[in-house]
Structures are given as C-alpha cells and as structure tokens.
Design a protein around this nucleic acid. Structure first.
Length: 400
DNA sequence: CCTCCACCGGAAAGCCGGGTCA
DNA sequence: TGACCCGGCTTTCCGGTGGAGG
C-alpha cells in the first residue's frame, strides 16, 4: 500500500503531461495584459487619474454579467495606479472587499472591515455602530491619503444603504486632506434603482457597463491563458473553441470558460492521458453542473434542506406541481420523523422563496379562485443529478 | 358583481449566541 | 459582574388579494 501510494506521488510529480502552470487558468489569475477590455480599462483610468494630483475622483459603479472582467479590470487599473502613485510619492490606499464572500451586508461590518484594512482590529460585534464609524473616520482623517474602496458584488449590501451613505458622506467631514472614493461592482444593472436615493445621487454620473464577451473574444482570452497553463501540444485542436462556445452561450462568462478548460485538463490528467480532447470538455461540463448543485444543497441550512426534501418527495410521488400547503404538511411530518422542531408556515413560506432564488425550485404565486392564493412549486434540479441530490439530502437530514 | 379561499408578505418584536466595557 | 450592543433567525400579528364559483 505504502509502496503504491509513494509510486503514485512520484509519478504525479514526474509525469507532467498536461499542465505547465495551472494557476494561469484559474479565474483569479491576473495576467499581464487584459485583452478585449482596453476601452473599459482606460475609462476607469481616466476617472481615477485625478488621484495622482491629489484631487478627489468621482465614485464609480461598474455593471456586467459575472465573468466579463469587471473585477479583473478594476484590480488591474488599481495595481497600475498604485505603482504610479508610488513613483511620484503620493499616498493612495486601495481597499478591495468582496461583499458577498465576506458577508459584508451591514453598516457595522463594512466599517469594521475597512478599519481592519487600515490596520485597526475591530471586534465582530459588540460596539455601537457610531463608535466604529468614528474610529474609521479618525483612521482615515489622520492618514492624509486617498482611499479607494472597491466593493465587489455590492448588491449584497442592498439592505445596508446606511453603510454606503456613510462612505460617500465621509468626504464632507474629513479635515486633513484625506479623500475617499468608492467603486461599486455589481452584476445587476437594476441595482441602482433599488438603492437609497441619497446614495444614488452620490454615485451619479459615472457608471460603466461591461458587455459580455463573444465567442471569438473568449477564444482569445483562453488562448492567452492556455499558453501559460498548458504544455505545448496538450490541447487537441477544437478544445478551446468548444470551451469558448459553451461559455459564450452562458452570457459570455470568461470565468466559466476558464473553469471548463481547467477541469477538462484535470480530467485528462487524472485519466493518465496526455492530450485534452473535446470529450473531456463535455465531461467537465457535466461534472461541474452536478458538483455545483450538490454543493449548494449541502451547504443549505438544515430547515431549508428539510423543505427541499419534502418538495422532492412530493414530486417523486407523482405530482409535478406542488403548493405551499402540501409542502408544509409534508415538512411537518418529516420534522416529526427526524425529531426536528418544525417552523411556522410563515417561515416556510420564506424558505420556499429562498429556494426559488437559489434556483433549486421555481415557485410563483398563483390564484386559484376559491381555492385560494398560493405558490406553485416545481423542482428545478436536472434529472441526472436528482439521485445525487436526494442522497445528499438524506445524509444531511439523516433520514432512512 | 360579490365572496371568500388559502395563502402572501410587511412590520414588529423576541430570542439567542456572539461580543464590549466599566 | 451586569448593562448594553450586534446580527441572524424566527414567531406573532394581520391586512391584502386574484380570480373561480356563486
């Protein structure tokens, strides 16, 4: 056993048949140059150039589907800007925050996070929000610098417009020449319509929309990355084309294209083949779909899982459309069986709505006249991943 | 045209587990 | 130690409602 494992490892190290530098086909990799985004990069640059003269730049909102280069372009510009600022000895700080991933969705958290970025630890909770604001304010004020706060996936902060307001208002109170500019990155164009008008006005003027990449553009991007990532000759002709074509159909998502290419490579590698083929791309696509879905299901709160499982059971026993009432009854029974405290129908109603948002089900309110008003629910999990999802739910809920 | 069903969904308030601070 | 704060989840309360059936 030991022998073979050892062999496996040495084999793995010595037998590099596919990848040269795998990181280059990860979406987080920032290449030396971003192709097909020159126009946007220049525009961002134009907006922030005043920073180099110590002037206040405007706030900026950037929109576009996922994987169209918003984050990459912004990070790219900031990198260059910081470099230039260093050359001419001007203080510029860039604070990059991903609101969704870091769960920054309240005033308190945003302020605390910025404070930490500026070198001051703030407890996760406990302090009055105004005190945190004052701390952040002092930090910025004393530093006499321009701080550019990048809020990626800013939609996650929708409920916390106070926080955004704070950030845009802070400039009026600063006394020692410090400045704060905000870059909001969102994949929802309607985001602006939903935010607080006070905040909206402070973002007025500058916004930038990133169009999706088309298939040829995606092909260029993949080729640029593949050059670094793969050994020469490791890709069969047509592989890149195929990844580009698939991703182009899904709103020109470069992240998706890169993931496909990387996973296809991994599959080929694991099978001990020295060439990535189109078939590997197909397999990669299937596997990614399945993994994404099961992962989402697995990481759902237990109560949500119970609701989903109830819907799944009802669907499997015939009906392809179920209603809130049915789900609730079934859910109650399930709770009884697995000894879990059942929640109210009101709450279940919300959980159903959440499951709709994450795409596991599709639910829409319909009126059935005398039959009352309810949600009509259909399961949205693809047939081929259904067994795996059911298995996952069973394990999570520990039902037999 | 009116009724009335079976929920929807907003508001407010409670509870809990995390924390600070004097 | 006790007063107080924060965020997340949940309950309680309750007014609202599209449209089939009367």
């Amino acid at each position: 056993m030991q022998q073979t494992l050892n062999e496996l490892f040495t084999n793995f190290i010595e037998k590099q048949t596919i990848f040269k530098e795998k990181d280059a086909v990860r979406p987080t990799y920032l290449p030396d140059s971003l192709i097909h985004r020159q126009e946007q990069i220049l525009k961002i640059g134009r907006i922030f150039a005043p920073v180099l003269k110590g002037e206040t730049p405007s706030n900026l909102l950037i929109f576009g589907w996922t994987g169209v280069g918003k984050t990459a372009a912004t990070r790219f510009v900031m990198q260059e800007l910081r470099q230039k600022a260093q050359e001419i000895k001007r203080a510029v700080d860039v604070v990059y925050l991903n609101c969704k991933m870091e769960k920054i969705n309240t005033e308190y958290r945003l302020l605390a996070r910025i404070a930490r970025e500026l070198g001051k630890e703030i407890p996760v909770t406990g302090l009055p929000t105004t005190e945190v604001y004052n701390t952040v304010f002092r930090l910025i004020n004393d530093k006499s610098t321009t701080i550019i706060v990048i809020l990626d996936e800013i939609d996650a902060m929708e409920q916390a417009s106070d926080a955004l307001y704070d950030l845009t208002r802070i400039n009026y109170d600063l006394t020692k020449g410090s400045r704060v500019a905000v870059v909001g990155i969102s994949n929802d164009i309607n985001f602006v319509e939903r935010i607080d008008p006070r905040v909206k006005s402070s973002f007025s003027g500058e916004d930038l929309v990133f169009p999706p990449y088309n298939a040829p553009q995606l092909k260029d991007i993949l080729e640029q990355r593949a050059d670094k990532a793969f050994l020469s000759g490791a890709l069969s002709p047509g592989v890149i084309q195929k990844c580009a074509a698939i991703a182009a159909q899904e709103h020109g998502d470069a992240r998706r294209a890169l993931d496909l290419l990387r996973v296809a490579g991994e599959i080929a590698e694991r099978r001990g083949q020295d060439k990535v083929t189109e078939e590997h791309v197909d397999d990669a696509q299937g596997r990614m779909d399945m993994e994404n879905i099961t992962e989402v299901v697995r990481t759902q709160p237990r109560q949500s899982q119970a609701v989903l499982y109830s819907i799944l059971l009802l669907t499997e026993s015939g009906a392809d459309e179920v209603e809130t009432g049915d789900v609730f009854n079934n859910y109650s029974k399930l709770c009884n069986k697995i000894k879990m405290k059942p929640l109210t129908q009101r709450r279940i109603s919300d959980l159903i709505a959440e499951l709709d948002i994450i795409g596991a089900i599709s639910a829409s309110v319909v009126s059935k006249g005398r039959g009352g008003r309810t949600r009509t629910i259909t399961l949205k999990i693809p047939q081929n991943t259904l067994p795996k999802v059911r298995q996952t739910l069973k394990e999570e809920l520990m039902v037999d």
